[in-house]
Design a binder for these strands. Structure first.
Lengths: 273, 273
DNA sequence: ACCCGTATGTTCGGCATCGTACACAACGCG
DNA sequence: CGCGTTGTGTACGATGCCGAACATACGGGT
């Protein structure tokens, strides 16, 4: 999938047309499932070291869940679930980063949550809903473990620790969304962009992110032009370097100083467990 | 408590000084407890018709919870819990409306959630946390039922329906926060203010709200002056009327048209149950 | 009846971000 | 190698909201 079609995925489909073409989604998901890694060794490696949420589970629950888990590779721009459409798979990111987007009535969208190895994509299912209220889009390619929705739903009641982790993560996502409200309200775009780079970098566990400035603009609800200007400023300050579809963090402490303190506040709650 | 001291409650206490004076909070809470209504009849009336969340519980759980519930009257500006401070009581609003506020590093705060008869104040406790990440402030005076935190925590595991309602409400609050992010990002202040009036009016079940424009400004993260200007515009359009510490909705359909569609989207999810 | 605290109304310059348009540069493919 | 596609850089006016300062009006208490 090209960057452009990825962006199309991001922006198409307003709230008035939530009954989107299910076939299209399936196609994307099927595309990812063709990348399934079948080697048990890889599966175990992914599982044990990858998801801090799964790693926190006791052995019994871990094994019970493992049966239904399937490793997949997710690519930038892939849509994992759409708002108001029943969730098919729950994803536990391992190396990928997933962005949650909410739309407004005229179709514009903005990121409202960021999930990595510490979390779950498809939380709503664990809270008893069949569908999420947001779109989940892959913001950094990488591996994930997924489980079918029905299977997850039937396993969850037998796994108290998984439940506990899920609720803890829900609390963290709630705090993340709420901090984002305050941050968007009071802080300048420069600080917000710096925060986004840091948060995504933390979850991708890499100083280099492969995405376009258009993508970034969509995430932050800014114009592409604004992102270019900010990136230029940060680059002149030697905090980052930019290429074509590539952003690298050069000076992490410097970037943290340029970001607002919402960064540390969110990460403390989110990545602490 | 005067409106001014209420506003002081709202704005004092930045994130750097989260270890606020516990004595002061206790004083406020004790003030409310002096207004406890002791008549069993009133208690029953409050319980049955007031909280749609409690009303959805089956008889057995209802009665089990009832033992610990205590009716209180909450006044504008009262702080029910502070971020990072252990929650003492869970509140089920009946006639009051409670606003959840998040602060940023420099102490400024903005509303990130609105709770009425449909919800719970102190959700974090139900998710396994001891403290919330937000401040809960009364935005419209009225009655509520409260229960001690420890008691709630011990009762919850025995009440599957209560758990289910709690998780359903958590999902709704998450959706509310996320929709607020998008709304603040894309919609003009006029529409946001209209939305706030409608949402608060729905929860207070009254066309008249008793609060100052300063209070409203704090909630929306705007200047008081901006609120005055917007209120003037809405008033000229005969949608609302304003008095000193009083706002009345005159033309509800008109105000809904002036608000963004985030209003109906949030209310559909939140008040549907 | 008066006064003072409190709430509301008005003005002014500043500026971050927007929408739009256009130019340039890198990569991929025939 | 040339060409179209895609990503990045620059310019310009418009505007919504901000910060600050000041003016007015309501209303309860002495």
């Amino acid at each position: 999938m090209s960057l452009q079609s990825a962006l199309l995925q991001l922006t198409k489909g307003g709230p008035e047309q939530q009954a989107i073409d299910a076939g299209e989604i399936d196609a994307i998901v099927d595309y990812s499932s063709s990348n399934v890694i079948l080697f048990p060794a890889a599966r175990r490696a992914l599982h044990a070291s990858g998801s801090s949420l799964l790693a926190a589970l006791p052995g019994a629950e871990y094994r019970q869940l493992l049966v239904g888990l399937e490793p997949v590779t997710l690519k930038l721009g892939q849509v994992l679930h759409e708002p108001a459409v029943p969730i098919r798979y729950i994803y536990f990111p391992v190396g990928c980063v997933v962005s949650l987007m909410t739309t407004v009535a005229d179709g514009k969208a903005v990121e409202v949550g960021l999930v990595g190895y510490e979390g779950i994509v498809g939380l709503a299912l664990g809270l008893g809903a069949a569908a999420s209220s947001v779109r989940a889009v892959v913001a950094a390619s990488g591996a994930a473990l997924r489980i079918e929705a029905a299977r997850f739903r039937s396993t969850l009641p037998q796994c108290p620790s998984l439940q506990q982790e899920l609720y803890r993560h829900t609390d963290a996502m709630l705090a993340q969304a709420r901090q984002t409200i305050a941050c968007n309200c009071f802080h300048l775009s420069d600080a917000r962009l710096a925060r986004w780079l840091l948060m995504t970098s933390d979850r991708a566990q890499s100083q280099e992110l492969f995405l376009t400035q258009s993508f970034l603009a969509t995430m932050l609800g800014l114009r592409r032009v604004t992102v270019t200007e900010i990136a230029g400023r940060l680059w002149r300050r030697k905090l980052i370097s930019c290429g074509r579809g590539r952003i690298r963090i050069l000076d992490r402490p410097g970037l943290e100083a340029a970001a607002c303190r919402c960064y540390s506040r969110i990460e403390r709650q989110q990545l602490s467990g």
